[in-house]
């Protein structure tokens, strides 16, 4: 569920000639600190404007556990200490999205998220977004003490604007805006379909996507480069399928429908892509 920016293969040699160039380079695919910085800003905006965290400790714990396990497993299985940007994002995602009065779920969710990357691999590639897997596991296995962020970000326009602006910048630079657009358009169409089926007001069906939590989901989760398919057309189809699966789950009154939809569709799409590539 985290936007894990791929490791760059090359780094531009030329020094920045101007402020514009520096800015462009900053907002570039090569800047592997960009996504961690953005999600940190979102966390801070949420906390400083709404005080939405139960405590800094829980979020800090989630981040620390994610990074420590990443270091340990990376060293053990790949012989080197990995870059921690991905683990940091996983940890901070867990810290934001998991809601629990207890402390241990934050540590456990981070541990499951990172470990899943090393266990659930097919042909050397992990197929689940780590924090999506971790959060789904917690929601499924520990509902007695775990829920997910749903309403705690307020309902005003400002958090939405911040996430939309920041999200749009990074997603556009990462050339993945088509994924977000497809998902949002699909969601709205399926909201109308759900409204038609259930007889509920259209605005009630659209309501979830107007909450800031959904903006996180749209910009930072379904776009994860490591766990989405490679082709642009494939990505559009997968985004559409996530929205479709979500509609099916919502019609069955599944509260955490988007998480579960991504959990089901994401790895399925990856496996199909691998199978397709192996045949061609």
């Amino acid at each position: 569920m985290t936007p894990e920016v791929s490791t760059p293969s090359t780094v531009p040699d030329a020094p920045a000639a101007s402020f514009t160039n520096a800015l462009k380079r900053f907002f570039s695919f090569e800047n592997r600190f960009l996504a961690p910085m953005l999600i940190t800003i979102i966390l801070l905006v949420g906390q400083l404007t709404f005080g939405f965290l139960e405590s800094y400790w829980k979020t800090g714990l989630a981040i620390a556990v994610a990074m420590l396990i990443e270091l340990a497993l990376g060293r053990l299985f790949f012989g080197k200490f990995p870059h921690l940007a991905s683990a940091y994002i996983s940890g901070i995602s867990v810290g934001i999205l998991v809601r629990s009065p207890a402390i241990w779920p934050y540590a456990l969710c981070s541990a499951i998220s990172i470990t899943s990357k090393y266990v659930l691999r097919v042909k050397g590639r992990h197929i689940w977004n780590p924090s999506n897997f971790g959060i789904c596991a917690m929601l499924f296995l520990a509902p007695f003490t775990v829920a997910s962020l749903s309403i705690q970000w307020g309902n005003t326009i400002w958090p939405m604007l911040i996430v939309w602006t920041l999200g749009s910048i990074i997603i556009y630079r990462l050339n993945r805006f088509h994924i977000c657009l497809t998902y949002v358009v699909s969601f709205i169409i399926f909201a109308a379909v759900r409204g038609f089926i259930t007889g509920h007001p259209f605005l009630a069906e659209v309501a979830p996507i107007t909450g800031p939590m959904y903006q996180l989901f749209v910009f930072f989760m379904i776009t994860d480069p490591r766990t989405t398919v490679n082709s642009k057309r494939g990505q559009v189809i997968v985004a559409f399928c996530v929205a479709l699966m979500e509609m099916i789950l919502r019609l069955n009154e599944t509260v955490h429908a988007p998480y579960y939809a991504l959990f089901i569709v994401g790895p399925t799409a990856n496996l199909i892509e691998m199978w397709w590539k192996s045949r061609h």
């Binding site: 309403i151 309902n155 005003t156 605005l203 309501a207 979830p208 107007t210 939590m213 509260v255």
Partner: peptide, 16 residues
């Protein structure tokens, strides 16, 4: 009613 409740409760102020 939990599902429908949570659906609207997370929405924008004009909806909720």
């Amino acid at each position: 009613y939990w599902y429908d409740f949570s659906k609207v409760a997370g929405g924008n102020r004009t909806i909720i």
